[in-house]
């Protein structure tokens, strides 16, 4: 009803949206590896190129994509600034004691900032294009081998999906309780740290009680629907690997190969 943009999922139908979540998870891992393998701008350029490609196919507005970077802008600027000031380069532009600005420092900072930005954009593309449920299914499926060592993969996945199901409910509830206490004059914004933590009590107590009450009712409802936690369970939705996934897989493989080739044949740093 209200501000429930949780999970960032951007509901449009696109090539990327339809990909198997497992593949998207693996692709993200491969992409991160590629970013870190890339040791120069050529490598990163390839990574960036692939990303532009994905964004185009995902039908996510550019503004949305950039907003993901906005969230970490501080981190990017901070790391970049540190590197500009403390990197030991040879071509010195300015110097104050141990602090210096060098050409190499500037280049390296730009390189790092770009790397970080690519990382964030690619990760957020995953959450923009994959529903939380699909993501849980993907994680469960990828973790299946762990069943052999008796790791409760299914239980973990169920916990994840229930958590995802209840996060919007609890966010709503928090908002409601917060409003109710604000209406009774509660002030969450002023005072020192200790005061602010104390001010949270009127929110946390009802929230916890409500979460317990909900958990109890949910447990009853699950048991009433024959849930026993046994291994006899079947699954209605099976993840399927289709032609789209094959294409995406090939793109991922090409990306890694490309970056590795760059690393070998264009070894110029930056």
């Amino acid at each position: 009803m209200k501000d429930v943009s949780f999970g960032q999922y951007y509901p449009v139908d696109s090539f990327v949206h339809r990909l198997d979540p497992r593949l998207k998870l693996l692709f993200l891992i491969a992409y991160i590896v590629a970013i870190f393998l890339a040791s120069n701008f050529y490598g990163l350029a390839v990574c960036a190129g692939v990303l532009v490609f994905i964004v185009a196919f995902a039908r996510i507005p550019i503004g949305k994509v950039l907003r993901a970077v906005k969230g970490v802008v501080f981190l990017v600027v901070f790391t970049a600034a540190l590197n500009i000031l403390f990197y030991n380069g040879e071509t010195v532009y300015a110097e104050w004691g141990i602090i210096s600005i060098t050409k190499e420092g500037l280049i390296f900072s730009a390189f790092l900032a770009l790397r970080l930005a690519l990382l964030v954009v690619c990760s957020s593309l995953l959450t923009y294009t994959t529903t939380p449920v699909a993501l849980t299914d993907g994680v469960e499926s990828l973790l299946t081998p762990l069943k052999w060592i008796r790791f409760p993969v299914h239980a973990l996945a169920l916990v994840m999906s229930i958590a995802l199901r209840f996060i919007p409910v609890l966010i709503d509830e928090t908002e409601r309780i917060k409003n109710a206490q604000k209406a009774r004059g509660a002030d969450f914004e002023s005072g020192n740290l200790f005061k602010r933590i104390r001010a949270m009590v009127p929110i946390l107590v009802p929230l916890l009680l409500s979460a317990f009450r909900r958990a109890e009712e949910l447990g009853d409802a699950m048991e009433a629907r024959c849930y026993t936690g046994s291994n006899q369970r079947t699954k209605y939705k099976k993840l399927r690997f289709g032609w789209r996934d094959l294409i995406a897989f090939l793109v991922g493989a090409a990306l890694i190969t490309g970056v590795v080739l760059m690393k070998i044949y264009l070894p110029a740093p930056y």
Partner: peptide
């Protein structure tokens, strides 16, 4: 407090999955 899944059909499937019915 009674639905386990985010999407309607996934939730309706829950009980039937629990008793091990085929897809």
């Amino acid at each position: 407090n009674q639905t386990v899944a985010t999407i309607v059909e996934d939730d309706v499937a829950f009980g039937a999955e629990n008793v091990g019915l085929p897809r």
